[in-house]
Simulated scan of single mutants.
Amino acid sequence: MRTEMTNLIILENWLLPKGRLELRITQTEVLQLIARHFKHGERIALGVQSSEGSFLPCMRHAVDVQVVDFFQLDDESLSFVFEGVQRLKVCETHPVSESLWQAKVRRLPDWPEQGLEKEFKVLSRALEYFYQTNPDISELYSHVHLEDANWVSQRWLEVLPIIDQDKLHLVNQPDCSEAMSFVLKMIIEQQIQ
C-alpha cells in the first residue's frame, strides 16, 4: 500500500471517523497549519499519545481530519472543532516543533456500513442518554447517527475509559462487530456493579 506524508498533532484524546473534538489551540505553528488547511487544504491528522517505551511518539492509529468550525474564547484564544475523516496507520514520524510532527501514514479502509442489530440497540439508547448528560459533547454534532452501528461504536470508543491498547485493537478490526460486543459487555458490567 502507498504511504503519504501528513501533518500530525498528538493528543491524549481519541478521535475516529465522523467523530468531532473541540480543541483550544494556542501554539503558533499549529495555528499557522490550520490557516494553511483552510487556505490550501493542507492535511492534518490527529494521533493519540503513545505510552512510554514506544519508538513512536503516538499510537500507530491516527485519523485524517478536517476543521469544521472555530470559536474565539473569552480569553481571546481560538477553539477549533475537528472532524475525523479516515483512519490512518502511522508508519514513522519526524518532529517539526514541540507540538507538531510530520508523519508518513497509510490510509486504512473505513469499516463497512452496518445497521444496528436489535441486541445492540441498548448502546444507541445509552449513547443518546450520554449526550443528554454531556451537552458539551453533543453540541459538536448537528446530527447524531444512532441507527448506524459504526457511528455508535466509534463514539463509544472515543469516550469510554478503555486502555489505549484495547482501543487500538478494536479500531484495527475489519468492521465494528468486535467493538460493539466489547462496549455492550462493558456497559452491562457497569450496570451490574
Rank of each mutant, 00 (worst) to 15 (best):
R2G: 00
F70Y: 15
C176A: 15
D164N: 14
Q32C: 01
P135F: 04
I162R: 06
Q32R: 13
D110V: 02
L23A: 05
V183N: 11
H40T: 10
M186D: 03
E113N: 07
Q190G: 04
F38Y: 15
E98W: 04
D164Y: 01
A149P: 12
K39S: 14
R43N: 08
Q132Y: 07
L8V: 10
C58W: 01
N150S: 02
R20N: 09
G19E: 09
L168Q: 15
I162N: 09
K18H: 10
L21Y: 09
H94E: 14
L184K: 14
Q154N: 09
T6D: 05
D164F: 01
N134D: 06
N134M: 07
K18Y: 05
I25D: 01
N134W: 02
H169E: 07
E139I: 08
S138E: 13
Q165C: 00
V159K: 04
L123W: 08
Q72S: 08
I34H: 10
R106Q: 15
F80L: 08
V96M: 12
N13K: 11
E189V: 02
R155H: 08
S177L: 08
E92S: 15
C58K: 01
Q32W: 00
W101I: 01
E52Y: 12
F38I: 03
H61R: 05
L157A: 11
E117P: 01
L123V: 04
N150M: 02
W101P: 06
R155T: 05
L16M: 14
L8A: 11
V105T: 14
P109E: 14
F55S: 12
F38A: 13
E113P: 11
A179V: 09
V171W: 08
F82L: 12
V105Q: 10
V85K: 14
G47I: 07
L140Y: 03
D74V: 09
H169C: 00
L21M: 15
I192V: 12
L160M: 15
R125G: 05
P174Y: 05
Q27C: 00
L127S: 05
L184W: 09
Y141A: 08
T93V: 13
E117T: 03
P95M: 02
Q114N: 12
K104E: 15
Y129F: 08
C176T: 09
M1D: 06
V159Q: 09
Q49Y: 05
V63T: 15
T26M: 12
D148W: 04
V152T: 02
G41V: 04
N150L: 03
V171H: 09
D136M: 13
M59F: 03
F71Q: 13
E22A: 15
H61M: 06
D74P: 02
N172W: 01
I44C: 03
I25W: 03
D148T: 05
L168V: 02
E117H: 10
Q49E: 13
P95Y: 03
Q102P: 00
S153T: 05
C58R: 00
V48D: 06
P109I: 01
L56W: 08
V122S: 13
Q72R: 15
Q173K: 14
K39A: 14
I163N: 14
E113R: 13
W111N: 02
R2L: 07
E119D: 13
G53N: 05
L73R: 14
Y129I: 11
F80M: 10
